[in-house]
Design a protein around this nucleic acid. Structure first.
Length: 255
DNA sequence: TTTGCAGGGTTAGAAAACTT
DNA sequence: AAGTTTTCTAACCCTGCAAA
């Protein structure tokens, strides 16, 4: 299963990050020496993966509806093993990636046989929220409950442990609460999308957002399933690296 | 302290517009 | 009347910062 190609695309353009600013913008020097401004879909602080001078990969996607023709997709950073590794930084990608993972059958063991997948389905108290993915089990499945899947892009890590979030996120807290609220009539699954191949476990980023960590552990106790999925990012695609264990305790507690 | 908004881009579903 | 295509809207990505 590991190594299964999940997404493939035209080879990305490589360059050097000059600076990231105004949250959505990044200036990048291409290999031919020219400079472009790319759209940075990741609005977070991108702790540990934002290094001016590092190599980055861009997608060229000019369109009349876009102001910027380039999208920043990947960044090269020092990995857990001391080697450089590529990290996926586009927060729009994980939803598609996890969907592809499920469709490829990589999570059959954990999720059971799936009949259909819907994305961005309205739910919650005032039907104001949207669940990333809503899965309908196949008729043969033992557990017939629908499965609510919330996907979180994870780029931060300490050592070989991936961490989310990397900043205070009241929105993330809200998502955890809403996952708990669909229990027990439905299954609730939080999938940290580990967008780098060098991590071997997942834990909540307590040092960045202690309340999120607390709520995360409450969610585990309440029956929310956590299913970290690990991927390798290449110039022309993304491949499956397998699931990873989720740790409830903050990594510093083990010291 | 809390609320509101901005920023570029994507998406699903609703609504409108246009065809048969 | 029913089907197809286009346009529009709101939530999402998720903070960071300014204003109340």
């Amino acid at each position: 299963m590991t190594g299964t190609p999940l997404l493939s695309f035209e080879p990305l353009t490589e360059g050097i990050l000059l600076k990231r600013y105004k949250r959505f913008l990044a200036d990048i020097e291409l290999e031919d020496g020219s400079c472009v401004t790319a759209h940075c879909a990741n609005t977070g602080p991108m702790t540990g993966v934002l290094i001016p001078g590092q190599r980055v990969r861009l997608r060229h996607a000019p369109s009349p509806t876009r102001k910027l023709a380039w999208t920043w997709e990947q960044a090269e950073v020092p990995g857990a093993d001391g080697q450089l590794c590529w990290v996926g930084i586009n927060t729009a990608l994980p939803n598609r990636l996890i969907r592809a993972t499920i469709e490829a059958g990589c999570l059959r063991e954990q999720l059971g046989e799936i009949e259909s997948i819907r994305a961005e389905v309205v739910y919650g108290k005032n039907r104001k929220s949207r669940i990333d993915l809503l899965l309908q089990p196949s008729r043969e499945a033992i557990d017939q409950r629908p499965i609510y899947v919330e996907v979180k892009n994870t780029t931060w890590s300490t050592g070989s442990t991936a961490l989310f979030p990397d900043t205070v996120t009241t929105r993330g807290q809200k998502h955890l609460q809403e996952l708990m609220d669909v229990l027990p009539e439905a299954r609730a699954v939080l999938i940290p999308c580990l967008s780098r191949p060098d991590v071997t476990a997942f834990a909540p980023g307590d040092s960045a957002d202690p309340r999120y960590g607390e709520l995360f552990r409450n969610a585990l106790d309440a029956g929310v399933e956590v299913l970290p999925c690990c991927f390798r990012f290449d110039r022309d695609g993304v491949t499956w690296q397998g699931t990873r264990p989720a740790q409830g305790q903050q990594p510093s507690a083990a010291l």
